[in-house]
């Protein structure tokens, strides 16, 4: 697949599902400052931890994959906030100083 847009990310999600894997979808729902990926950006995460697309420049994807694992095990969507000034709720932050909020849901 030589494309990197939402259509291609959803196609990857579909092929994981066709292969019998459960898949979570992360949406960038809000950004502040110099967040690298705009609102509406998607990232798909398979049950085995593979990912397609991105929600940042690579800074927080690891944490999103971990949370996606929880979303897939209990079926409950989650909100994730990343940024340097959010009381260190997360140990990962954005070196660029941006902030973002991500919504992760299972495809079921």
């Amino acid at each position: 697949m030589i494309r990197d847009d939402n259509e291609a990310i959803l196609a990857q999600a579909a092929s994981w599902r066709d292969a019998g894997q459960s898949v979570a979808l992360a949406h960038v729902i809000a950004t502040w400052g110099s967040a690298p990926r705009p609102v509406g950006s998607l990232m798909a995460i398979s049950a085995s931890g593979a990912m397609a697309g991105s929600v940042s420049g690579g800074c927080v994807e690891g944490a999103v994959v971990m949370e996606a694992g929880k979303v897939l095990s209990d079926g409950e969507p989650r909100f994730l906030s990343f940024g340097i000034s959010n009381e260190m709720a997360w140990e990962v932050g954005l070196a660029c100083g941006g902030k973002l909020e991500v919504y992760v849901e299972p495809i079921q």
Binding site: N6, E7, L10, A11, A13, A14, R17, L25, H27, I29, F79, Y103, E105, P106, I107, Q108
Partner: peptide, 26 residues
Amino acid sequence: MKARIFDALRAALADRRPVALVTDLG
């Protein structure tokens, strides 16, 4: 996201139809 919404979203993109996915965050 229900599988049928996921499929409908992909179908819209394949048909070049602009759509919005509205999620009630509550």
